[in-house]
Protein backbone atom coordinates (compact mmCIF):
# COMPACT_ATOMS: atom_id res chain seq x y z
CA UNK A 1 0.00 0.00 0.00
CA UNK A 2 2.79 2.37 0.93
CA UNK A 3 4.54 1.62 -2.35
CA UNK A 4 1.37 2.37 -4.28
CA UNK A 5 1.19 5.74 -2.56
CA UNK A 6 4.70 6.57 -3.71
CA UNK A 7 3.91 5.87 -7.33
CA UNK A 8 0.68 7.87 -7.31
CA UNK A 9 2.44 10.74 -5.61
CA UNK A 10 5.16 10.79 -8.26
CA UNK A 11 2.57 10.54 -11.00
CA UNK A 12 0.73 13.50 -9.51
CA UNK A 13 3.87 15.58 -10.01
CA UNK A 14 3.55 15.16 -13.78
CA UNK A 15 0.75 17.62 -14.39
CA UNK A 16 0.24 18.85 -17.96
CA UNK A 17 2.09 22.09 -17.25
CA UNK A 18 4.99 20.13 -15.71
CA UNK A 19 5.20 17.85 -18.77
CA UNK A 20 5.18 20.88 -21.04
CA UNK A 21 7.95 22.46 -18.97
CA UNK A 22 10.29 19.54 -19.74
CA UNK A 23 10.83 20.24 -23.48
CA UNK A 24 11.09 23.95 -22.72
CA UNK A 25 13.72 23.27 -20.05
CA UNK A 26 15.67 21.24 -22.59
CA UNK A 27 15.37 24.16 -25.01
CA UNK A 28 16.75 26.52 -22.35
CA UNK A 29 19.62 24.11 -21.66
CA UNK A 30 20.47 24.20 -25.36
CA UNK A 31 20.04 27.99 -25.62
CA UNK A 32 22.52 28.38 -22.77
CA UNK A 33 25.17 27.40 -25.26
CA UNK A 34 24.42 30.53 -27.33
CA UNK A 35 25.00 32.79 -24.30
CA UNK A 36 28.14 30.83 -23.48
CA UNK A 37 29.41 31.57 -26.99
CA UNK A 38 28.40 35.24 -26.80
CA UNK A 39 30.14 35.89 -23.48
CA UNK A 40 33.02 33.44 -23.69
CA UNK A 41 33.30 32.65 -19.98
CA UNK A 42 33.74 29.09 -18.63
CA UNK A 43 30.06 29.02 -17.68
CA UNK A 44 28.25 26.42 -19.75
CA UNK A 45 24.70 27.02 -18.57
CA UNK A 46 23.87 23.54 -19.84
CA UNK A 47 21.90 22.68 -16.69
CA UNK A 48 20.23 26.06 -16.19
CA UNK A 49 16.90 24.92 -17.62
CA UNK A 50 16.99 21.76 -15.50
CA UNK A 51 17.57 23.80 -12.33
CA UNK A 52 14.81 26.24 -13.31
CA UNK A 53 12.37 23.35 -13.80
CA UNK A 54 13.47 21.87 -10.47
CA UNK A 55 12.47 25.08 -8.73
CA UNK A 56 9.09 25.13 -10.49
CA UNK A 57 8.05 21.48 -10.77
CA UNK A 58 10.14 19.50 -8.29
CA UNK A 59 12.70 16.69 -8.33
CA UNK A 60 10.98 14.03 -10.45
CA UNK A 61 10.06 16.28 -13.34
CA UNK A 62 13.47 17.97 -13.33
CA UNK A 63 15.27 14.61 -13.19
CA UNK A 64 13.36 13.29 -16.20
CA UNK A 65 13.87 16.60 -18.01
CA UNK A 66 17.59 16.55 -17.31
CA UNK A 67 18.01 12.99 -18.53
CA UNK A 68 16.02 13.66 -21.69
CA UNK A 69 18.18 16.69 -22.49
CA UNK A 70 20.90 14.24 -23.38
CA UNK A 71 18.62 11.65 -24.95
CA UNK A 72 17.30 14.28 -27.34
CA UNK A 73 20.82 15.51 -28.07
CA UNK A 74 21.70 11.92 -28.94
CA UNK A 75 18.68 11.60 -31.25
CA UNK A 76 19.13 15.00 -32.88
CA UNK A 77 22.88 14.90 -33.48
CA UNK A 78 23.51 11.16 -33.30
CA UNK A 79 26.00 11.30 -30.41
CA UNK A 80 25.37 8.07 -28.55
CA UNK A 81 27.91 8.97 -25.85
CA UNK A 82 25.84 11.89 -24.61
CA UNK A 83 23.20 9.49 -23.22
CA UNK A 84 25.67 8.41 -20.51
CA UNK A 85 26.09 12.01 -19.40
CA UNK A 86 22.32 12.22 -18.97
CA UNK A 87 22.90 10.68 -15.54
CA UNK A 88 24.71 13.86 -14.49
CA UNK A 89 21.74 15.97 -15.53
CA UNK A 90 19.38 13.55 -13.80
CA UNK A 91 21.36 13.87 -10.57
CA UNK A 92 21.45 17.66 -10.73
CA UNK A 93 17.75 17.99 -11.56
CA UNK A 94 16.76 15.63 -8.80
CA UNK A 95 18.99 17.25 -6.19
CA UNK A 96 17.91 20.80 -7.10
CA UNK A 97 14.29 19.67 -6.89
CA UNK A 98 15.00 18.03 -3.55
CA UNK A 99 16.39 21.34 -2.26
CA UNK A 100 13.21 23.03 -3.49
CA UNK A 101 11.07 20.43 -1.71
CA UNK A 102 13.01 21.02 1.49
CA UNK A 103 12.61 24.78 1.02
CA UNK A 104 16.35 25.41 0.99
CA UNK A 105 16.19 27.93 -1.83
CA UNK A 106 14.17 30.37 0.30
CA UNK A 107 17.05 32.29 1.86
CA UNK A 108 19.38 34.13 -0.53
CA UNK A 109 22.53 33.06 1.29
CA UNK A 110 21.61 29.39 0.98
CA UNK A 111 21.52 29.62 -2.83
CA UNK A 112 25.32 29.53 -3.37
CA UNK A 113 25.62 26.72 -0.82
CA UNK A 114 23.09 24.65 -2.76
CA UNK A 115 25.02 25.59 -5.91
CA UNK A 116 28.26 24.23 -4.45
CA UNK A 117 26.45 21.01 -3.49
CA UNK A 118 25.18 20.74 -7.08
CA UNK A 119 28.69 21.35 -8.46
CA UNK A 120 30.10 18.61 -6.23
CA UNK A 121 27.33 16.23 -7.32
CA UNK A 122 27.98 17.02 -10.96
CA UNK A 123 31.69 16.34 -10.50
CA UNK A 124 31.03 13.11 -8.55
CA UNK A 125 28.67 11.66 -11.15
CA UNK A 126 30.51 12.86 -14.24
CA UNK A 127 34.00 11.73 -13.16
CA UNK A 128 33.41 7.93 -13.44
CA UNK A 129 31.38 8.39 -16.65
CA UNK A 130 34.02 10.52 -18.32
CA UNK A 131 36.67 7.94 -17.37
CA UNK A 132 34.82 4.87 -18.66
CA UNK A 133 33.39 6.47 -21.78
CA UNK A 134 36.02 8.97 -22.86
CA UNK A 135 39.17 8.08 -20.90
CA UNK A 136 38.96 11.26 -18.82
CA UNK A 137 39.11 13.59 -21.81
CA UNK A 138 36.34 15.95 -22.90
CA UNK A 139 37.99 17.92 -25.71
CA UNK A 140 37.68 21.30 -23.96
CA UNK A 141 39.78 23.60 -21.76
CA UNK A 142 39.09 21.38 -18.76
CA UNK A 143 41.57 18.84 -20.18
CA UNK A 144 44.41 21.27 -19.48
CA UNK A 145 43.40 21.47 -15.81
CA UNK A 146 43.17 17.67 -15.71
CA UNK A 147 46.61 17.29 -17.33
CA UNK A 148 48.04 19.84 -14.88
CA UNK A 149 46.74 17.87 -11.88
CA UNK A 150 48.07 14.61 -13.34
CA UNK A 151 51.46 16.17 -14.11
CA UNK A 152 51.84 17.45 -10.55
CA UNK A 153 51.62 13.82 -9.43
CA UNK A 154 48.05 13.76 -8.14
CA UNK A 155 46.14 10.53 -7.85
CA UNK A 156 44.11 9.80 -11.00
CA UNK A 157 40.72 10.09 -9.32
CA UNK A 158 41.70 13.17 -7.31
CA UNK A 159 42.87 14.80 -10.52
CA UNK A 160 39.71 14.10 -12.46
CA UNK A 161 37.39 15.02 -9.60
CA UNK A 162 39.26 18.20 -8.69
CA UNK A 163 39.43 19.42 -12.29
CA UNK A 164 35.71 18.77 -12.81
CA UNK A 165 34.76 20.44 -9.52
CA UNK A 166 36.90 23.53 -10.20
CA UNK A 167 35.32 24.03 -13.59
CA UNK A 168 31.77 23.43 -12.36
CA UNK A 169 31.93 25.79 -9.40
CA UNK A 170 31.70 29.04 -11.37
CA UNK A 171 28.82 27.66 -13.45
CA UNK A 172 26.67 25.99 -10.80
CA UNK A 173 27.84 27.93 -7.75
CA UNK A 174 26.78 31.35 -9.07
CA UNK A 175 25.15 31.78 -12.46
CA UNK A 176 23.15 28.59 -13.01
CA UNK A 177 21.54 28.70 -9.57
CA UNK A 178 21.24 32.41 -8.81
CA UNK A 179 19.56 33.52 -12.05
CA UNK A 180 16.81 30.83 -12.12
CA UNK A 181 16.23 31.53 -8.43
CA UNK A 182 15.86 35.27 -9.07
CA UNK A 183 13.53 34.53 -12.00
CA UNK A 184 11.31 32.31 -9.85
CA UNK A 185 11.27 35.00 -7.13
CA UNK A 186 10.10 37.63 -9.60
CA UNK A 187 7.57 35.44 -11.42
CA UNK A 188 4.18 37.21 -11.54
CA UNK A 189 1.69 35.67 -9.13
CA UNK A 190 -0.76 34.60 -11.86
CA UNK A 191 1.96 32.42 -13.43
CA UNK A 192 3.55 31.30 -10.17
CA UNK A 193 0.41 29.69 -8.79
CA UNK A 194 0.27 27.27 -11.72
CA UNK A 195 3.44 25.53 -10.53
CA UNK A 196 3.55 23.36 -7.43
CA UNK A 197 6.96 24.20 -6.05
CA UNK A 198 7.08 27.99 -6.40
CA UNK A 199 5.57 28.36 -2.91
CA UNK A 200 8.56 26.50 -1.48
CA UNK A 201 11.12 28.65 -3.29
CA UNK A 202 9.67 32.15 -2.84
Amino acid sequence: MAKQDWITRIKAEFTTIAIVMIPIAIGINQAGRLIHEALGLPVWLDTIGTIFTAMLCGPWVAGVGGFFTNVVTAIAYGRATSVFFGLVQLGIGFLAGFFAWKGWWKKWWKVPLCGIALAATAALISAPIVVTVRGGVSGQGIDLVFAFFLATGQNFWTAIFASRFLIEILDKGIISTYIPWAAVKRLPEKYARMFKYTKKVR
Binding site: V20, P23, G27, A76
Partner: peptide, 8 residues
Amino acid sequence: IVLATLQI
Protein backbone atom coordinates in the same frame (compact mmCIF):
# COMPACT_ATOMS: atom_id res chain seq x y z
CA ILE B 1 9.09 15.00 -24.61
CA VAL B 2 11.25 13.74 -27.48
CA LEU B 3 9.09 15.10 -30.30
CA ALA B 4 8.17 18.40 -28.66
CA THR B 5 11.79 19.07 -27.77
CA LEU B 6 12.93 18.60 -31.35
CA GLN B 7 10.49 21.36 -32.33
CA ILE B 8 11.15 23.63 -29.37
